[in-house]
Design a binder for these strands. Structure first.
Length: 488
RNA sequence: GCGGGUGUAGCUCAGUGGUAGAGCGUCACGUUGCCAACGUGAAUGUCGUGGGUUCGAAUCUCAUCACCCGCUCCA
């Protein structure tokens, strides 16, 4: 009987052995939390991203795509709240060496809360009355130290002129910053959404479990703009759509679930949020987030309207983003530059935003984990990755049964024909059974084998990865049949 | 960041102070006629990295890096 994955180690080993995923900078001993996608991995991950794009952009009338730069104007991150919220102060308890965010510490006397402000004076906050949530000791803290969750770099080669900029911690803000541009250039109308795939960077406190939580990661994000009041129904719509996407690509239903966020868990901008979780085989079979679907309300667009009007202040502060504060929102904010005039409703408003935000690396890992199976065939162990054909790095393996009697030539001709339509792999080395098993471990759904009979009647065998059954197929019908089976 | 564990060939691992090994995989040749076949041969090691102890270190020791498990953290 087929067995699924018990620990991540087996998968990590397979990923390295077969060229899916390598540790970054491996020859230098590795760099924490960074991973590289090898020849098979890059195909798999690209297939995941392409399947997402097809589902949310290509097949929909109400979606368009975008690809923003990773570096943006620093004020983008002031407006979004990341400059403040992503620079928390942390203090370490000298007793138990546990680090805790200063604004999470509770005092013994009174509940005087430390407010978010990030001047140097913060670092001398009196923590003598605070209690360590870990060991209960009072007042044994180090001085608060800033914990920068955004990656910083500088723009400009000349030190004098260079400016501090951030690597984006989410792709979402690039979408909000381009809301106007997309509206003005596409004739699209609310309700509509913008999709983007791209790298983001966060200095996570702890990284975790292979490519699950890394500091450099790739997101697949949608910001869907809708009329206030319709947001809840669109949130439901995307919940269902996104769950169905994972199911359609072959993830087992019992390994997927929704997890609604409790109200005290919601981000400052969110009205509602639900995670799509997958049961990963790390921890104790832990459920972990693949994607979050949040109702961001009109928070972001309103904040950017404030930010747009604060640029002069920023310049006057000497381009010091942390010391710039946003101007107040005017009375008529709903008519601002990022508002939308709804012809049908005859009103102007700031759209509400539903954000389905998925991790491309997490998704790829989930597809790998869910596809993994070990089974016994004739007393031998068979490792197979049962990828959905759309995700399989290689769609078709093409072999000559043996390396003689013109079989390699015929097989190569078929290979050269098929590779124009989908990624194929030609192999003539060692016994054919071994070649089948090699393709099983790469997750290749079909293998085509040229044999002695091919020369007589122009037929080949088509072997199915999952059933291991073979059928004879005429070469003339091969391409059509494969396109049908692979749905490509 | 804390505690525990691990690090030796591409992978899995043996080797506990004295000449670096096995299985699998890879490659070549032969054989082979549909599911990890067989024979012969071959290649592949900064023993994670750097210091120390020692006549001699994969082995002892210190530091460091990376990974795993558990805390902690996770707008």
């Amino acid at each position: 009987m087929a067995e699924t994955l018990k620990s991540l180690d087996e998968l990590v080993s397979l990923c390295k052995r077969r060229g899916f995923i390598f540790q970054s900078s491996d020859i230098y001993g590795g760099l924490a939390s960074c991973y590289d996608y090898g020849p098979l991995g890059v195909e798999l991950k690209r297939n995941v991203k392409n399947a997402w794009w097809k589902s949310v952009v290509q097949m929909r009338d109400d979606m368009v795509g975008l690809d923003c730069s990773i570096l943006m104007h620093p004020m983008v991150w002031k407006s979004s709240g990341h400059v403040d919220k992503f620079a928390d102060l942390v203090a370490e308890c000298k007793k138990c060496n546990t680090r805790t965010r200063v604004d999470h510490l509770q005092g013994t006397e009174g509940a005087e809360t430390t407010h978010h402000s990030h001047g140097e004076e913060q670092e001398h906050t009196d923590l003598s009355g605070k209690v360590c949530p870990s060991c209960g000791t009072t007042g044994q803290f180090t001085n608060p130290m800033p914990f920068k969750l955004m990656f910083e770099t500088q723009m400009g080669a000349n030190v004098e002129d260079s400016m501090k900029v951030y690597l984006r911690p989410e792709t979402a803000q690039g979408i909000f910053a381009n809301f106007r541009n997309v509206m003005d250039s596409t004739r699209i109308k609310v309700p509509f959404g913008i999709a983007q795939v791209g790298k983001s960077f966060r200095n996570e406190v702890t990284t975790k479990a292979f490519i699950f939580r890394t500091r450099e990661f790739e997101q697949m994000e949608i910001e869907f703009f809708c009329q206030p009041g319709t947001d809840e129904q669109w949130w439901e719509h995307w919940k269902e759509q996104r769950m169905q996407w994972y199911l359609d690509l072959g993830i087992r239903r019992e390994n997927l679930k929704f997890r609604p966020h409790a109200s005290d868990e919601l981000a400052h901008y969110a009205k509602a949020c639900v995670d799509i979780e997958y049961r990963f085989p790390f921890g104790q079979g832990d459920w972990q987030e693949l994607e979050g679907i949040a109702n961001r309300t009109d928070y972001d667009l309103r904040q950017h309207q404030r930010g747009m009007r604060s640029v002069t202040k920023w310049f006057e502060s000497g381009r010091n983003t942390e010391k710039t504060s946003l101007v107040e929102e005017p009375e008529d904010w709903h008519k601002g530059p990022l508002s939308f005039f709804d012809d049908e409703a005859r009103e102007r408003y700031i759209p509400y935003v539903i954000e389905p935000s998925a991790g491309a690396d997490r998704g790829t890992l989930a597809f790998l984990v869910d596809a993994y199976a070990e089974e016994e065939v004739r007393g031998e162990k068979r490792n197979v990755l049962r990828f959905h054909p759309k995700l399989a790095p290689i769609k078709v393996g093409v072999f000559p049964l043996v390396k003689k009697e013109g079989m390699p030539e015929r097989a190569k001709a078929i290979y050269n024909d098929l590779r124009g339509y989908f990624s194929c792999f030609y192999d003539e080395k060692s016994a054919v059974g071994r070649r089948y098993r090699r393709q099983d471990e790469a997750g290749t759904p079909y293998c085509v084998t040229v044999d002695g009979q091919t020369a007589e009647d122009n037929t080949v065998t088509l072997r199915d990865r999952d059933s291991m059954e073979q059928t004879r197929v005429s070469c003339d019908k091969l391409l059509g049949l494969l396109r049908e089976k692979l749905d490509m």
